Amino acid sequence: MHTAISDPVRDLRRIGAETAQALEAIAATQNDALAATIEAIGAARRVFVLGAGRSGLALRMTAMRLMHLGLHVHVVGDTTTPAIEAGDLLLTASGSGTTGAVVRAATTARSVGARIATLTTATSSPLAELSDTVIVVPAADKLDRSGAASVQYAGSLFEQAVALIGDALFHTLWQRSGQSADDLWPRHANLE
């Protein structure tokens, strides 16, 4: 049982600092991977996103923003998701790079000639090996409970980074598109 007295303000600051440190490490070392991922998204006929658990939820946020940009985006597993084909991109997130469903989907995507972009903590993983571009997040994966890579529980830092990297990818694509916020607004859901 965890007996330390919780201090939410302290924890908020620790989490914010840890997330900022991870993102700064990515910005300092992975410009090529970020640029290649942006190019792959921009060149894709359609973008499919896939991650399991909280990683998948983070990528769903990216899918929504890419849709707001006017891209054709599908969340793998939704009943209306079509077959992936050559010319498409599978954007994945898996801290371990070994999540079975994600690796199987990447294998299928590769077999039909689709490109694969991955966010992971594991450069030497089956998912990374299948991918055209890999953004490596310096964070613990969900099985690392040592506390060495993150003070947060399980894959929290990875999942936070996935959401923020997705926002950065979107933001760059949005700025390049020349569209205004008013241009994007009509694509927001209106059946709420």
Results as ranks from 00 to 15, higher is better:
T108N: 03
A52C: 12
T92N: 00
A40V: 09
L90E: 01
G70L: 04
G95A: 12
L119E: 02
T133P: 08
S94M: 12
L50A: 15
V103A: 04
E85T: 14
T62I: 00
A86K: 14
L143W: 14
T99R: 02
A114F: 07
G51S: 12
G42V: 11
I84P: 03
L164I: 15
A35R: 14
A139N: 12
A28F: 04
T123P: 15
R115A: 14
F48H: 14
R46Q: 13
P126I: 01
G147S: 09
M61G: 15
R60S: 10
L50S: 12
V103F: 02
A52F: 01
A148I: 14
H171G: 12
V102N: 00
H171Q: 13
G166S: 03
A52K: 06
I38P: 03
G97F: 02
R65Q: 06
E129H: 15
I26M: 05
P138L: 08
A58L: 07
A52I: 12
S96W: 06
L130Y: 09
L90V: 02
P138R: 07
P138H: 04
A139H: 11
A128G: 15
G70C: 07
D167A: 13
F48R: 04
S146I: 13
E159L: 10
T121K: 02
E39Y: 06
S96C: 11
E85M: 13
D144C: 10
D132K: 06
M64G: 13
L169M: 00
T108R: 08
A43L: 05
R60P: 03
Q160N: 13
D78S: 12
P126F: 01
S124C: 03
A63G: 10
G155I: 01
G166C: 03
S124R: 13
D167Y: 08
V49W: 00
D167K: 07
T79H: 09
V112M: 05
P82W: 04
G97N: 05
G166V: 03
I116D: 07
V75N: 10
A101E: 15
E159P: 10
V151E: 06
V112H: 04
A106D: 10
I38S: 06
T81G: 08
R46T: 13
G87N: 00
G77M: 05
G87W: 02
A139R: 12
H68S: 00
T121E: 02
T37L: 14
A101G: 13
H72I: 14
T133L: 08
S156K: 03
L130D: 06
D144S: 08
D132G: 07
A106R: 09
V47F: 00
E39N: 15
A168E: 10
A40L: 15
A105N: 07
R46M: 08
D132P: 09
G147Q: 03
P126A: 00
V73C: 08
L59P: 05
A27G: 10
L119V: 06
V102S: 04
G42H: 07
T29Q: 11
A106Q: 08
T99P: 03
